[in-house]
Amino acid sequence: MGIHLFLWLLSVTTSCLGSTNVFNDKRELQSKFFNEDWMMSIPDTTPLSAITIPGTHESLSLYGGPLVCQVWTLENQLSVGLRFFDIHAGIWIWTQKYLYIRDRYWMFSQGKKVDEVLECIAKFLEVHKSETVLMMVTLHGLYKDTAKELWATLVDTYKNIMLTSNSVPNMEQARGKIVLLQSHNGPSGGAQVQSSPFFKNNELISHKVDTMELRLDVCKSHFVLTDMETKRFRIKSQKNLARRVNQQIYNVVLQSKKSSASQGCLGVFGMIFPGAELIKAMTLLRPCDCGGAGTPEATPEPTPEPAPTNTRTSTWTNTRTNTRTSTWTNTWTNTWTNTRTNTWTNTWTNT
């Protein structure tokens, strides 16, 4: 591939790849598509931002006619391998004691509390300890200060499994944890996020992207997010949008897989109506090579200091009389050198 990853606006249709499942609008998820522990093989030292992570845009907008963005429940999204979730929540009236999930336009309730979302994710991570979940929370409504207070209470409740630092953790630090990402209208805290270099206005950018630039983007101290943009009251158009953009994302994944220099340097994706095979293809990419950050390095053995050399010469004469046999004089010289391996030489003469 040289030093560039080539990205096209390809004029291919879904039929070009046969039955590739890049789009899904069916609520049922067959168990053959479960992909619950795909992060297990990722080295502990890998920065989380250097992993291609599939996720969903408006992850829990399951109801609302033209504003529907997903069909799988949160449980099914976790089971199929999705690990990034875009959550929109708030309170409708000031007397509410819980944050409720709604669509991004704040029109349709999804009948679920944020408490329930966090509990569901926590239960999943308790069983699948090798995994991590990225979460971006956007707060809506007229009472955002109250919403922020309610969110702060939830963070404190789940503080043992929630990372809110603005830095990117590595895989070891993130396993079994929820990693909060910063949102423009979200609560404080969370890792920094940069917009994707791949798409603009839901179109694949038709130019070369330097592989070094890609690697620098995802290996820095922030996440790179490709997030789809949906249109209000255009459900048919949204599904057509998902078919087209998901196909383009799949093409990018295939191109990345062929590149030895930039495989896996794609970042995080927030998709609508993603298909199981598209998700699987993303999880099979190896992490981006951040100059060895994703591969444990052998710790070099320290170079031992040279052992002191001791040279000593001793000369003495022993005279002893043995009345049973004879009288003899035993004279010898003992000279040795003491090094790390303790070798020495002895010379002597007997008379």
Score class of each variant (00 low, 15 high):
residue 40 M to D: 13
residue 102 R to Q: 04
residue 76 N to C: 00
residue 68 V to C: 08
residue 90 G to W: 06
residue 87 I to G: 00
residue 93 I to R: 14
residue 43 P to Y: 07
residue 57 H to W: 03
residue 54 P to A: 05
residue 69 C to W: 01
residue 86 D to S: 04
residue 82 L to N: 02
residue 66 P to A: 10
residue 86 D to C: 08
residue 48 L to F: 02
residue 90 G to F: 09
residue 99 L to N: 06
residue 73 T to K: 08
residue 78 L to M: 05
residue 71 V to H: 13
residue 55 G to P: 01
residue 59 S to T: 15
residue 89 A to F: 00
residue 46 T to G: 08
residue 57 H to E: 10
residue 43 P to W: 08
residue 68 V to Y: 05
residue 101 I to C: 09
residue 97 K to C: 07
residue 58 E to R: 05
residue 70 Q to L: 13
residue 97 K to Y: 14
residue 83 R to I: 04
residue 50 A to E: 11
residue 46 T to A: 05
residue 45 T to H: 10
residue 75 E to K: 15
residue 81 G to R: 12
residue 69 C to F: 01
residue 47 P to E: 13
residue 45 T to Y: 10
residue 48 L to K: 06
residue 100 Y to F: 12
residue 75 E to H: 11
residue 74 L to F: 07
residue 66 P to Y: 10
residue 53 I to D: 05
residue 83 R to S: 12
residue 82 L to S: 10
residue 85 F to S: 08
residue 86 D to T: 03
residue 41 S to D: 10
residue 73 T to V: 03
residue 66 P to S: 10
residue 64 G to D: 08
residue 66 P to E: 14
residue 100 Y to M: 10
residue 42 I to N: 02
residue 57 H to Q: 11
residue 92 W to P: 00
residue 63 Y to W: 12
residue 91 I to Y: 09
residue 94 W to E: 15
residue 54 P to V: 10
residue 77 Q to E: 11
residue 71 V to K: 15
residue 78 L to Y: 03
residue 98 Y to P: 00
residue 102 R to H: 06
residue 65 G to H: 08
residue 86 D to I: 05
residue 77 Q to T: 04
residue 66 P to I: 06
residue 62 L to R: 14
residue 90 G to Q: 06
residue 70 Q to E: 15
residue 67 L to M: 15
residue 93 I to H: 11
residue 51 I to F: 01
residue 103 D to E: 14
residue 62 L to A: 07
residue 50 A to T: 08
residue 49 S to V: 08
residue 45 T to S: 15
residue 89 A to Q: 07
residue 86 D to L: 03
residue 50 A to M: 11
residue 49 S to H: 09
residue 103 D to L: 04
residue 69 C to K: 08
residue 51 I to C: 10
residue 103 D to R: 04
residue 44 D to V: 04
residue 53 I to Y: 13
residue 67 L to N: 14
residue 70 Q to Y: 14
residue 59 S to F: 09
residue 57 H to G: 02
residue 87 I to S: 05
residue 88 H to I: 02
residue 85 F to K: 11
residue 81 G to W: 08
residue 42 I to S: 09
residue 47 P to R: 12
residue 69 C to P: 01
residue 71 V to E: 15
residue 61 S to T: 13
residue 55 G to Q: 03
residue 48 L to P: 01
residue 84 F to I: 11
residue 83 R to C: 09
residue 83 R to K: 11
residue 74 L to K: 06
residue 90 G to I: 02
residue 99 L to D: 01
residue 103 D to W: 03
residue 74 L to T: 04
residue 101 I to A: 09
residue 46 T to Q: 08
residue 82 L to F: 02
residue 71 V to Q: 13
residue 48 L to A: 14
residue 46 T to W: 01
residue 69 C to Y: 01
residue 84 F to P: 02
residue 78 L to K: 04
residue 63 Y to L: 12
residue 56 T to V: 07
residue 46 T to Y: 03
residue 102 R to W: 02
residue 87 I to R: 07
residue 66 P to Q: 13
residue 54 P to W: 10
residue 51 I to W: 03
residue 100 Y to W: 14
residue 96 Q to D: 12
residue 99 L to E: 09
residue 68 V to R: 14
residue 74 L to R: 09
